[in-house]
Simulated scan of single mutants.
Amino acid sequence: MSTPLRTSYPVPVEDLIPAAREFAAELGEVPSQNRLMKHLRIGKDKARAVHAALTEERAEDRPEIRLHSVPDPDESTAEPTTEAGTVNEATEGAPEESAQVTPPRDLLPTTDTAPVDPVPAAAEPNGARGISPAPETTSDSDAETGDEMRPVRSWPVLLLALPAFVAVWSGWVGLGELTGFGVVHPLPGIADGFTLNSAITLPIGVETYAAFALRVWLSGRVPAKARRFAKVSALSALALGALGQVAYHLLEAAGVTAAPWPITTVVACLPVAVLGMGAALAHLIHTRPARPTKNGEK
């Protein structure tokens, strides 16, 4: 049985005719354009050209076919019949010498009377047909889909982060000064003139970790255990940052110059807590589940 051509390049009509001729030999008749389109997986224009070539070849071979279409000697007096066995009305009542035998239907060229497929062959997927279609025009729906798939630009986040950074920074630094954080000399004996306000460790540590854990949680590219930890710790860091801002503004509005000891205790533990959560999250990100051994032991 003939197999349809499969190639990623357009096949010329001349190369399609041998396969179409073999297909016509299997059917015993010239296939219609629609059948050629489906069997050879080609477009309508090429199917019309191949059909015309097969029809022309069959027309050239028709005289030889008529030589074999001889009526049965036992039925020489009977009227000629068609393939279905019915009397040919065109020759009924005509003189015997003018009667002609109608060739079988499968030996005559057929015209394409089947309804044309409303979907052109060029619209079929390339993987299903195997032959590159004619250049297609992009529809409005495809253009809309492509626009929807484009990534959304994130530069507006910078505008949102700038005022938030100013407010969060001033709030954490102010709360740190109320809880004992202040100017220190981080390099005594090395650079005595170098000073650093330790209150800046609060906004850098808490807010940076909250943003990092939030990204890890929403990325979807980390192990499930790391994603759960990032979710809980990110929400906790954001809630803690909000409580720190509330506490500072309440103390500032009340004119307090030194925070109560419970607030001082919590704020003093924040750098250590942020360090521990950051180290744990980094470890979970790079951890993969152990593969079980043949005996079922890990």
Score class of each variant (00 low, 15 high):
76 S>T: 14
52 A>I: 00
248 Y>V: 01
87 V>F: 11
71 P>C: 00
86 T>M: 06
137 T>F: 05
3 T>S: 04
255 G>M: 02
104 P>K: 13
2 S>Y: 09
102 T>G: 05
57 E>G: 09
252 E>K: 15
152 V>A: 11
6 R>G: 04
119 V>T: 11
209 Y>Q: 14
73 P>R: 12
270 L>S: 14
133 P>I: 00
239 A>S: 05
59 A>E: 15
89 E>H: 11
162 L>A: 15
96 E>D: 08
162 L>K: 02
118 P>T: 00
169 W>L: 12
109 P>W: 14
7 T>E: 13
121 A>F: 02
44 K>F: 03
137 T>D: 01
132 S>Y: 01
215 R>W: 07
128 A>N: 13
32 S>Q: 07
197 N>P: 12
288 R>Y: 09
159 L>S: 03
153 R>H: 08
40 L>I: 05
133 P>A: 09
231 K>D: 07
227 R>I: 06
275 L>V: 14
18 P>E: 07
109 P>N: 03
158 L>N: 03
40 L>G: 07
112 D>L: 03
20 A>S: 05
88 N>L: 10
208 T>M: 07
119 V>I: 10
97 E>T: 06
182 G>K: 02
19 A>G: 03
275 L>S: 11
203 P>T: 11
231 K>T: 01
199 A>S: 14
167 A>Q: 08
119 V>F: 00
75 E>W: 04
133 P>N: 04
265 T>D: 15
61 D>G: 12
159 L>T: 07
269 C>F: 05
194 F>N: 09
68 H>R: 15
180 G>L: 04
168 V>A: 10
227 R>H: 01
115 P>H: 04
50 V>F: 08
283 H>Y: 14
234 A>V: 06
152 V>M: 06
68 H>S: 12
267 V>Y: 08
261 W>A: 15
142 D>T: 07
235 L>M: 08
268 A>I: 00
273 A>K: 06
109 P>Y: 13
180 G>K: 10
297 E>R: 15
173 V>F: 02
236 S>Y: 01
211 A>S: 09
123 A>K: 06
10 P>M: 02
16 L>E: 04
296 G>M: 06
260 P>T: 11
177 E>W: 07
249 H>G: 01
203 P>G: 09
79 E>G: 03
113 T>N: 13
195 T>K: 03
91 T>K: 10
164 A>P: 02
68 H>T: 09
48 R>C: 12
172 W>H: 12
3 T>Q: 09
75 E>F: 06
271 P>S: 11
102 T>L: 15
64 E>Y: 04
155 W>R: 13
130 G>H: 08
86 T>S: 14
183 V>E: 10
230 A>P: 05
107 L>G: 00
223 P>G: 10
124 E>I: 01
123 A>W: 04
191 A>K: 12
160 L>Y: 03
51 H>I: 05
226 A>D: 09
264 T>S: 15
188 P>G: 06
56 E>K: 14
144 E>W: 04
155 W>C: 07
122 A>N: 08
100 Q>A: 11
158 L>T: 07
281 L>W: 02
13 V>I: 08
257 T>P: 02
115 P>F: 01
20 A>Q: 05
222 V>T: 12
2 S>A: 07
74 D>F: 09
249 H>I: 14
130 G>F: 05
177 E>H: 12
151 P>Y: 02
87 V>Y: 12
